[in-house]
Computed example of a mutant assay.
Amino acid sequence: MSLYLAPTAAIISAATTLPRQVAPPIDVRRLERGMALPMPPPPPPPPLVSANRYVGAKHKAVVVMGATGTGKSRLAVDLALQFGGEVINADKIQVHAGLDVATNKVTEEECAGVPHHLLGVARPDDDFTAADFRREASRAAGAAAARGRLPIIAGGSNTYIEELVDGDRRAFRERYDCCFLWVDVQLPVLHGYVARRVDDMCARGLVGEIAAAFDPRRTDYSRGVWRAIGAPELDAYLRWSGDDEDERARLLAAAIEDIKSNTRRLACRQRAKIQRLAKLWRVRRVDATEVFRRRGDAADEAWQRLVAAPCIDVVRSFLHNGDAAADDLPPEVPAFAPTPAAAVAV
């Protein structure tokens, strides 16, 4: 039996509660004249029953949300490896080709052999709207489910996720039961982490990547992959043509600080949006703050204990039982925690 389709009991119930077929009354006059009696109508075919589903059963899907840098992609891969899933990217910048460092696309190593969809599928200058995402993500989820795999939608573009789940007259919800997971990190800790991550991105070639793609004729950073944090911030630095190396260094330092500041603002906006969605959906929050206070092996151990293991338990319950209560997460983790107003205003 598949982990995320209708249980056998429901199949048996459906197959044994068909309406009884009543034979038509015998026409005595036809019988006396030696005429053949009409054959009773054939019974309707039974429901299409397989080892794991019957007609009308909903598939199941997992949605992993969180602010930038909280570990959504890592959790999605952990769940996919555990339950035989495929990851559908829900990041409106990563859906475009190019700027892999600036957009923090998962690497082949980080994918760990798990199929990923909607990564780099749109051209750099194209608009990829929420409606486009709903259409393509629905196709990817349907194809994954048809292969007997668990669709796992993961990303920080909550507008995309909301459009997928509630758009088109909630068509996705008609086909899928959804388990919503929110990986959360306290903002002061997250802000410190994203600053270090920007430094790491610079070490991995962020500035050179954007410089290689820089076009001095471009003045619009509101479309496609060019919306990625880093591209507009480095514009003034890349346009500088003077000989003053101190000024050049100052422009670069200012750009990097702007990248960090704008990433912190993005995290606040994303967290506030998830809090709004948590009032509409049954969102299960897991607090990963302690993970980001640690480094190296200690951080990996905390991730497995505080994030991966509790979320695996929640999803296992969801797949087997059809639902998972918020108290399936550790009792010390609240189901909902508001963002301080001061943090949202950052």
Rank of each mutant, 00 (worst) to 15 (best):
L3I: 07
Y4Q: 14
I12C: 05
A14V: 03
A15L: 11
P19Y: 06
P19N: 06
V22D: 03
I26Y: 03
M39K: 11
P42Y: 10
P46A: 10
K60L: 02
A61W: 04
V63I: 15
V63K: 04
V64N: 06
T68A: 02
G69F: 00
T70G: 03
S73V: 14
R74C: 02
A76E: 11
A80H: 06
A80G: 04
L81S: 01
F83T: 05
F83C: 06
G85Y: 03
E86R: 09
E86Y: 03
I88P: 08
D91V: 09
I93Q: 03
Q94N: 10
Q94R: 10
V95I: 14
A97T: 15
P115M: 13
P115R: 14
H117W: 12
V121L: 05
P124E: 11
D125W: 11
D125V: 12
T129Y: 02
A131T: 11
F133I: 07
A137E: 08
R139Y: 06
A140Y: 01
A143C: 02
A144N: 02
G148N: 11
G148Q: 11
L150K: 02
L150Q: 03
Y160I: 12
E163P: 08
G167V: 12
D168M: 07
F172H: 02
R175Y: 00
L181S: 00
W182C: 08
W182V: 06
V183Q: 03
V183M: 06
L187Y: 15
L187T: 15
L190D: 01
G192R: 12
V194N: 07
R196T: 13
R197D: 13
M201E: 05
M201Q: 05
A203E: 11
V207S: 08
I210P: 11
R218V: 09
R218T: 10
R218M: 07
R218S: 07
T219P: 06
W226T: 09
W226Q: 04
A228G: 13
A228E: 10
G230I: 09
P232K: 07
E233T: 10
L234F: 07
D235R: 14
A236L: 03
A236V: 10
Y237L: 08
R239N: 06
W240D: 15
W240N: 13
D246V: 13
E247C: 12
A249D: 13
A254R: 10
A254N: 05
I256M: 10
E257D: 15
K260C: 06
S261L: 15
R271Y: 05
Q275N: 15
K279A: 14
R284M: 05
T289S: 15
F292D: 08
F292R: 02
R294T: 13
G296V: 13
A298C: 04
A299L: 11
E301H: 01
A302Y: 00
A302C: 00
Q304I: 00
Q304A: 00
I312D: 00
V315S: 01
V315W: 02
R316D: 14
F318I: 09
A325H: 04
A326S: 12
A326Y: 01
V333G: 04
P334M: 03
P340M: 02
A343E: 15
A345W: 01
V346K: 11
V346H: 14
